[in-house]
């Protein structure tokens, strides 16, 4: 089901932090959300998921506008790792994905599903280890499994690969692309690594100062000019073996900043 967002506005006090007039996210593909720090990426995700006070409308497929509560139930948002310390086991953390729907006795199905998810993400061996004994990357994958345990229709992932090594970045994003195609999920992923965005996303949304400033396939969005205006960097765009663009950042674009870095 397609996710429609209309006239989404978020204000922090008087400041208009986010203004998205219209956004459609099609199911089955990975859409990357890119943009510099403080562009409003997390705000956009939290507002769509109903976790952030916002005006505007969000609809899923042919259903009517969803209120905040329905959004929280149907749209799974995975926050960045908040570093919560807990002695809960990895499996228990995944089980908590369904926290609102769990009774005193756990259905065997839920436990099996949680164990399977951990297995698929390569965490089968640490299922019974406490969360705070896991590495940053493992924690991030555990929380990804927790989010998937909810079996959502819409998946909004905030920096899911930030703590992962190269192998796990590729593996996790590859699995997400497969999952989105197989279950026809709407999948929006914040990525700081533009090469990953270019490689895995069918579509790249670029957010700057709370507004969408570019929207299209990676090859159209990731251009030297745009990276200069948005990120303030000089970058070289190449073409990878799979025909997708590759991004090599070269130097900060604005001379003042560049000079400062060199003089240090």
């Amino acid at each position: 089901m397609t996710l429609h967002v209309r006239d989404l506005r978020v204000r922090y006090g008087r400041r208009l932090a986010l203004q998205v007039d219209s956004l459609r996210l099609e199911p089955g593909v990975l859409t990357a959300l890119i943009g510099p720090n403080a562009a409003g990426k997390s705000t956009l995700m939290r507002a769509v998921a109903g976790l952030q006070e916002a005006s505007g409308a969000v609809r899923l497929g042919r259903h009517g506008d969803m209120d905040r509560r329905t959004r929280t139930e149907n749209i799974a948002y995975m926050p960045q790792d908040t570093g919560a310390r807990s002695a809960l086991s990895a499996l228990e953390v995944v089980l908590l994905g369904k926290v609102g729907r769990l009774g005193l006795r756990l259905p065997a199905d839920d436990i099996a599903a949680a164990a399977r998810l951990l297995d698929e993400l390569g965490l089968g061996a640490v299922a019974d280890r406490p969360l705070d004994s896991l590495s940053g990357g493992q924690r991030q994958l555990v929380f990804l499994a927790q989010t998937l345990q909810r079996r959502p229709r819409v998946l909004l992932l905030d920096e899911p690969t930030a703590a992962l090594d190269l192998h796990h970045q590729l593996a996790a994003l590859g699995r997400l692309v497969d999952l989105a195609a197989r279950e026809q999920l709407v999948l929006l992923v914040t990525l700081h690594d533009l090469n990953l965005a270019a490689r895995f996303a069918e579509r790249v949304l670029c957010l700057a100062a709370g507004r969408i400033c570019a929207d299209g396939p990676p090859v159209e969005v990731l251009t030297p000019d745009r990276l200069r205006t948005i990120y303030d960097v000089e970058a070289e765009i190449g073409t990878g073996r799979d025909g997708r663009p590759t991004v090599t950042p070269l130097a900060p674009a604005s001379p003042a900043l560049a000079g400062e870095v060199v003089s240090r």
Partner: peptide, 18 residues
């Protein structure tokens, strides 16, 4: 279960719909 999940932090609890 919600109390158990509270140990993961407010942000995550909210994102789980509580």
């Amino acid at each position: 279960w919600k109390l158990t999940a509270m140990r993961l932090g407010d942000d995550r609890l909210a994102s789980l719909g509580v």
